[in-house]
C-alpha cells in the first residue's frame, strides 16, 4: 500500500522535531547540563561570575571593632552584620560611597522574633501586639547586644517626675513606701500589680495629728476634726508637694 501523502508530511515534521532535540542534546547544549562533574564546575563558575554583594563580618570588623566586639559578646553573636544591614560590599569598599541602612523598624526584628508556633522551643519570641506595642525595639534593646533590659530597681526608673518633685518638697525625706504599699511584681510588670494609694484622711493623720507617735512624724500638726472639713487631704494638698497650694 502506498503511504498517504499526509503521513509523509507529518513524518517530516516529527523528523525535524526529533532532529532538533538530538541536535540540542548532543551538539548545542553543554555537557555540563548532563553529567555531574562538569555541571558542578559550571555552576561554580556561574556563581563566581556574579558580583560580590556581601563583604562578610571579618571585613566589617576592620573599621567597626566596637560593634563587632559588642555583638560578639552577646546573643546576636551568630547573626552576620549584613543580615540586618543588608548587603554592604560597596560600603566596605568605599565607606563614603554608600551607607548601609539602619533597620530600626519593629518589622526588622519581628522577622526573627515575632511569635510563630513553629519556631523551636526556647527561641526568644515576643507577641508583637503585646510586647511594648508601637515602640521601636531599639529604644529598649541594643541590636548589637540584645539582652532584655534590666527592670529598674528604683521607683525613679519609671516615676522620675514624681520622685524629683517630691525631692524638692517638705516630704523629701519620706520613702514612697510610707504612703504606698508596692508589690515586687510592680517593678517588672507594673500594670499587672498596681500599688496601693492612700484612701483616707487617717493616712496623713498618722504624722500630722498633735502628739503623733510615728517616728517620721511631722512637727507641724493640724486639728484633724476641723481642718479641711470632711474632704480627703489631697483634695487640697498634692501629697508629693504638700506645701504647694492647688
Amino acid at each position: 500500500m502506498k503511504l498517504p501523502e499526509q503521513v509523509t508530511r507529518l513524518g517530516i515534521v516529527i523528523a525535524v522535531i526529533v532532529a532538533v532535540v538530538l541536535l540540542l542534546r548532543f551538539v548545542i547544549l553543554p555537557e555540563s547540563l548532563f553529567s555531574a562533574r562538569p555541571h558542578q564546575a559550571a555552576a561554580a563558575e556561574r556563581e563566581m561570575a556574579k558580583p560580590l554583594r556581601h563583604a562578610g563580618v571579618a571585613v566589617c570588623r576592620e573599621c567597626h571593632e566596637e560593634q563587632f566586639e559588642l555583638k560578639y559578646g552577646g546573643k546576636h553573636r551568630t547573626i552576620g552584620c549584613e543580615n540586618c544591614h543588608g548587603p554592604a560590599a560597596s560600603h566596605a569598599a568605599d565607606e563614603n560611597a554608600a551607607k548601609p541602612p539602619l533597620p530600626r523598624e519593629r518589622e526588622a526584628c519581628l522577622a526573627c522574633h515575632g511569635y510563630d508556633s513553629s519556631r523551636p522551643n526556647g527561641f526568644p519570641q515576643v507577641d508583637p501586639l503585646e510586647h511594648r506595642p508601637r515602640k521601636k525595639c531599639v529604644t529598649c534593646h541594643d541590636p548589637h547586644d540584645p539582652v532584655p533590659p534590666k527592670a529598674p530597681t528604683e521607683c525613679t526608673g519609671c516615676h522620675g517626675r514624681i520622685e524629683h518633685t517630691k525631692a524638692m518638697s517638705t516630704h523629701a525625706l519620706l520613702p514612697c513606701a510610707s504612703c504606698h504599699a508596692v508589690d515586687a511584681q510592680h517593678m517588672t510588670e507594673p500594670r499587672l500589680a498596681l500599688p496601693t494609694k492612700p484612701d483616707s484622711r487617717e493616712v496623713c493623720g498618722r504624722c500630722h495629728v498633735p502628739g503623733a507617735t510615728d517616728p517620721a512624724a511631722s512637727k507641724v500638726s493640724v486639728d484633724m476634726a476641723a481642718h479641711g472639713g470632711t474632704y480627703v487631704c489631697w483634695e487640697c494638698h498634692y501629697a508629693h508637694l504638700p506645701e504647694g497650694r492647688k
Binding site: 498517504p4 499526509q6 503521513v7 507529518l10
Partner: peptide, 15 residues
C-alpha cells in the same frame, strides 16, 4: 495543513 493537498477519498478515509 503542512502544505498537503490530497483530498482524494482514500486520503480522507485515512484521516
Amino acid at each position: 495543513s503542512l502544505f498537503s493537498k490530497d483530498l482524494s477519498p482514500e486520503a480522507l478515509a485515512f484521516d
